[in-house]
Amino acid sequence: MNRFLGPTTPRNATADVVDVRVSDTHDADEQAACLTDWGQCYEQMSHGSFDGHFESYRFDGIEIFREDTNQVVQQYGQPQAGTMTLAALLNISDDGRFCGTPVSPDHYFFLRGGKEFHFRTPQRVTLAAVTVNMERFAAYCQRVGELPPPGTCVDNGLIHKGEQDELGGVLTSLMQSLRHSPDMLRHDTLRRCLAEGIHSTVLGLCGPTENTAKDLTACTRQYVVNKARDYMREHVDEPITVSDLCAHIRVSRRTLQYSFQDVLGTNPARYLRNMRLNGARREIRRQTDERAPVADIAARWGFWHPSRFASEYKSLFGELPSATLKAAVKH
């Protein structure tokens, strides 16, 4: 059963079309056809009825998708040229092989657009992945003062998962929210924050590891933080991203990170999240109707997970957003 929920047009008429696709399949060929522009061929190799599931969310040059299969399948394909894909195994019953190499949950798959891949799946597997447009990813890297990762991103292969890497968990949580409320992708700000976070995650997984920004002087670090805070004050009613700060101050993401950590004892992402929480609170307090959709306000300020937004909001302000709204309406 295929449930095609897109495309839809974002509220900003100049933005990209948003696609949401959900499919339950009972044949390997049906499963292969779910991921468009990949030229895939799936061949079932184990005995039994095939059951598969596929869901995809595509926006602004990014596609997030999940695939479930219950049989051993030989997968061949070639992602669309001009893209790169990172995939995480969420559930695996036994060993599979990717481009001739044994895989485990400790690996991420890297797939380069235009390069053919081969994946022999385990008997049962759940995979979550994100595909990014290379031009947009390169533009993000330029904004945050980083070079697009060279060596890792030449051919298909495996990336060993670090202790702090949570790509699978991030994609799973994001898709749970989008599955429940796909309409949130209509919000320009939310899509921009999601794209920022995804590009940052991809860069962190396959980008350079050297930390040259550690040699900054105390004076330079204070200057960077002061410039960032000045920019935030000038745009207090806008949801600012880390790349916005990097582009304005003309420093790299790592320079910004070390400056905030040393001067303020926190990282810029957490600082900006608190700024966005304050922005959402101000908007909630301006409401005059107790039925005002708090989830829409959260989405406009870049929060895509409603329960997490409520938890972070309560942690910062000591009350739930609904309590703030109720008090605002009474006054």
Rank of each mutant, 00 (worst) to 15 (best):
R3W: 10
N12A: 14
N12I: 10
A15T: 08
V18T: 13
T25V: 15
Q31W: 09
T36N: 06
S46A: 00
S49E: 15
D60C: 05
R66I: 02
E67Q: 13
Q71I: 06
Q80H: 12
T85P: 01
I92Y: 04
D94Q: 11
R97C: 01
P105K: 00
H107V: 01
Y108K: 00
E116W: 04
F117Q: 08
H118A: 01
P122Q: 03
R124N: 13
A129H: 01
N133D: 15
F137P: 00
A139L: 10
C141N: 06
Q142R: 15
R143V: 06
E146D: 11
P150S: 14
P150T: 14
C153W: 12
H160E: 15
T189C: 14
L194W: 12
E196C: 09
G197Q: 12
G204H: 12
G204M: 11
G207I: 01
D215C: 03
T220C: 04
R221Q: 15
V224H: 09
E238R: 13
I240F: 12
V242E: 15
R254G: 06
L256E: 09
Q257A: 07
F260A: 04
R276F: 05
R281P: 03
R285C: 08
Q287P: 02
D289Q: 11
A295W: 05
D296I: 02
A298V: 01
A323W: 03
K326F: 07
